[in-house]
Design a protein around this nucleic acid. Structure first.
Length: 509
RNA sequence: GUCCCCAUCGUCCAGAGGCCCAGGACGUGGCCCUUUCAAGGCCAAAACACGGGUUCGAAUCCCGUUGGGGACGCCA
């Protein structure tokens, strides 16, 4: 039975690199009918918070990475928060202590620092010098009784090779000469990372440890711990890291790095999941018969094709452009009602929709065709149709693009003629708008771009945007909505033409 | 500094000795479509880091160099 786990420490938001690690674990579990465990590594009381734990759980759920065992759902191997497992670590630490696999260390940080500096200066790998290695338990106990607070160090057998077969990298060998006796219990008696992880993974019967490459050098330490504790080590797989475009670890200055940020900016979870799965892995190798459609795949299909052995060895660079492309794809594929529900918050944030009502949602859905397909993110949908809700000729006239349109020969004639034609027109739909545009063409002699570009500017206040055939009816429908609909007031086309003509100061010919 | 990992188009991948003067996707450029901006369609440019081996034959195997990344904590 395959059992995998994702073990974040709740010290901030879920980073996309870690989300990818979680995803690979999830894919492996789901492709093989395994169990996915969520464990919270909150032994660092200083930095761990319940808020970030909740945030991480939220982000994982949003991504669709559900877990079978975890702090909120429980399971047969709980508790699933390290802070609630302290008694277990204490018990195993004592076992190691009495078996001479570990010893108390009273070295001061000053001394440790000095040793480290000396090692570095001499070109040796910095490691614990072993001052307290020979201390007897009686001596140690005496010092503890005298009030000293030691750490517990694991006695690393020197001069041996620790090797393991990494599922993605193959055989990896470390010599213990480069590993010093490391701390397993801190002076305040909280467990140190490597120790807690081994106790937990063993007790939780984790069969495959899949984690970031930054943990590869922890692996020999952990294997040594497994042996000393009498546990069988699991399989290991180390995923290469995700970097920024400049080949440095993905960080804030590269833009959005946390799942929350992508969510807030209007990415769809299936897009992020699909994109993340493709960093360091390709579904293609698994099903070469399907050359087509081998990148855009739903999470279940990804799981079906996923093979940990096929994961790449080299670091991947996070490419926001490709993510944007995928998001565009998934927005086009999404049901309009869902898209409207997801995009609603951006409309309310901008004051375009003041209250969620059926009428408002229907109207939002009707606006979607003007934006979906041409924008990358949900947030941009609202920006793309902004002209519907905001119409201010004076502000538009401050735009160089708009001014440029109006400077075209005959543009003013079109503005004037349109205002007149619309003054007598009723509610415009696609057909009546076209008819009106036709009359303006006849009156001014302008056609094509010279005709429609000024019309666009007059009616939308912008030099670019969705097709007028769509935009005009959308404005008109909005203008008819009562205030009780929850949709902000929309200025109708006739009014727009009048206001714009006045602002430009054109007179009818 | 020491140890570990890595190395195919700008980016993500395919390629598990001959199928490759290297294939797909994003991005880029051009063309088409078009009343605008996008979107969409078509086409194009673009890579096996370098040097040695092994082999009839290497992007694929081995060694080295260079480059990149990671680790070396009472952080995880």
């Amino acid at each position: 039975m395959m059992r995998v786990r994702f073990a974040p420490s709740p010290t901030g938001q879920l980073h996309v690199g870690n989300a990818r690690t979680a995803l690979f674990n999830w894919l492996l579990a789901h492709g093989r009918d395994g169990t996915f465990i969520l464990r919270i590594e909150d032994t660092d009381a200083e930095r761990s918070t319940r808020e970030s734990e909740a945030g991480i759980l939220d982000d994982l759920r949003w991504l669709g990475l559900d877990w079978d065992e975890g702090p909120d759902v429980g399971g047969q191997h709980g508790p699933y928060r390290q802070s609630e497992r302290l008694h277990l670590y204490a018990s195993y630490a004592n076992e190691l202590l009495s078996g001479q696999h570990a010893y108390s260390c009273f070295c001061t940080s000053t001394r440790l620092d000095a040793d480290r500096q000396a090692d570095l200066a001499a070109g040796r790998p910095p490691r614990y010098h072993g001052h307290c290695r020979g201390l007897s338990r009686a001596e140690a106990q005496a010092r503890i009784d005298a009030g000293e607070r030691p750490v517990v160090r694991f006695r690393v057998p020197q001069g041996i090779e620790v090797r393991f077969r990494d599922l993605v990298r193959g055989e990896v060998i470390f010599n213990t000469d480069v590993i010093g006796d490391f701390v397993i219990v801190r002076s305040d008696s909280r467990p140190q990372y490597n120790f807690a992880v081994v106790v937990d993974d063993a007790l939780m019967e984790v069969s495959h440890v899949i984690r970031g490459e930054d943990h590869i050098s922890n692996t020999p330490r952990q294997i040594l711990l497994y042996r000393a504790l009498g546990f069988a080590p699991p399989e290991f797989a180390h995923l290469s890291l995700v970097m920024g475009p400049d080949h440095t670890p993905l960080s804030k200055r590269h833009g959005a790095t946390s799942v929350t940020e992508f969510r807030v900016r209007g990415y769809l979870p299936e897009a992020l999941v699909n994109y993340l799965a493709l960093i360091g892995w390709s579904p293609r190798g698994a099903a070469p018969e399907q050359a087509e459609q081998d990148e855009l795949l739903p999470i279940d299909e990804l799981a079906r094709r996923f093979r940990i052995e096929a994961v790449g060895h080299s670091a991947g660079i996070f490419d926001p452009e490709k993510l944007a492309w995928m998001n565009r794809h998934y927005m086009k594929a999404a049901a309009p009602s869902r898209l409207a529900a997801e995009a609603l918050r951006y409309f309310t944030a901008r004051g375009f929709i003041t209250r969620r009502t059926d009428a408002a949602m229907d109207y939002l859905v009707s606006l979607l065709p003007m934006a979906v397909g041409s924008v990358d993110r949900l947030e941009e949908i609202a920006d793309r149709v902004r002209f519907v809700f905001q119409f201010d000729p004076a502000a538009s006239l401050a735009s160089p693009e708009v001014l440029g349109v109006l400077e075209e020969p005959g543009a003013h004639d079109v503005v004037a003629a349109l205002a007149e034609e619309l003054a007598s027109a009723g509610r415009l739909d696609r057909e009546t708008f076209r008819a009106a545009a036709g009359r303006v063409r006849e009156r001014t002699g302008q056609k094509g771009r010279a005709l429609f570009h000024p019309i666009r500017v007059v009616l939308t206040g912008e030099a670019g945007g969705p097709e007028l055939d769509l935009a005009v009816p959308a404005i008109e429908r909005g203008a008819e909505l009562p205030a009780s609909s929850g949709v902000a007031r929309v200025t109708g086309c006739r009014e727009r033409a009048r206001l714009f003509a006045a602002a430009v100061g054109v007179r009818s010919a």
